[in-house]
Design a protein around this nucleic acid. Structure first.
Lengths: 143, 143
DNA sequence: TATTTTAATTATCAAAAGACAACTAAATGA
DNA sequence: TCATTTAGTTGTCTTTTGATAATTAAAATA
């Protein structure tokens, strides 16, 4: 199978991932935060490590000024905290607060509920296959 | 492996897919269209079949009024055309025009270029494995 | 030490996207 | 046939998001 066909499959695949993810995350975003704010919190939560403002700005592709503004708003909602790097005091590490963690935990539980609903007809063998496939793509494509 | 761990992997996986897709599609959106408009065109292009306004509204999760407005704008840019269903004349099928197809073809070529750059170190065996994994996920998870 | 670069902030303005009410026209169904 | 539902449209207002310039403070470097 040549590269070209793989690429075409990937276009479809990406679109499917987006569609299903959309579906699973329908209505899980708390009303007090906006879409970008949700993306930022999700990014921080999944990263599980101190993330700087620059990294957020880079990865989610919002400008530094706008990232800074949204982080400030999330701070005002007591969902994140800033702490400057002791090595380089220009850098700001962003953390979820307890409140932020609690909120995101609830979000993921809701998504998991939707996910289990979606997969209720899948066999154990199916789930194993899915897991293997996810591992492969995670390593070889989405690193 | 139990469901819970698979779910956690999927959270990470989804986040990775988003990040890499973001990366591959960086700067490919033509300046004359907005982000939502790009999403709509991409949705129509990937679907490869007549799509109604309701379906666009459903899948991309924008309200009917807003979907209608964006489609009108895309029509004014000569990128899409509407054609009412002969069976049910309330329904509007949305198509890419020649211009729309040409634009999206260029977009996908650019993404493919970025993709090939990204994968230049992958072996033929890697690519085969990736393709198998994509097929599995497409069938068993992202249907 | 003086200059330049980097990380982040603040303020402001413009554009995009979302929400909602009121409407038309076609289809469905009692 | 008449009421109701469905698909889409139009207009308007608000909120969110994006873009840019100016600024601060720390770090790197000449």
């Amino acid at each position: 199978m040549d590269n070209k066909t793989l690429f075409n499959k990937l276009i479809t695949f990406t679109s499917s991932v987006l569609r299903v993810t959309n579906d699973l995350t329908k209505d899980v975003r708390p009303d007090i935060i906006t879409q970008v704010q949700y993306e930022i919190l999700d990014f921080i939560a999944v990263a599980k490590q101190p993330i700087t403002l620059s990294e957020i700005s880079d990865c989610i592709r919002i400008s530094m000024p706008n990232a800074s503004r949204e982080i400030r708003k999330l701070g005002e909602l007591h969902l994140v905290e800033k702490k400057s790097d002791v090595e380089d005091r220009r850098k700001q590490f962003i953390y979820l607060t307890k409140d932020g963690e609690t909120m995101m935990k609830k979000v993921y539980q809701q998504i998991e509920f939707n996910f289990k609903n979606r997969m209720e007809n899948a066999s154990a063998e199916d789930l194993k296959e899915i897991e293997r496939a996810v591992d492969i793509l995670q390593t070889k494509l989405y690193f």
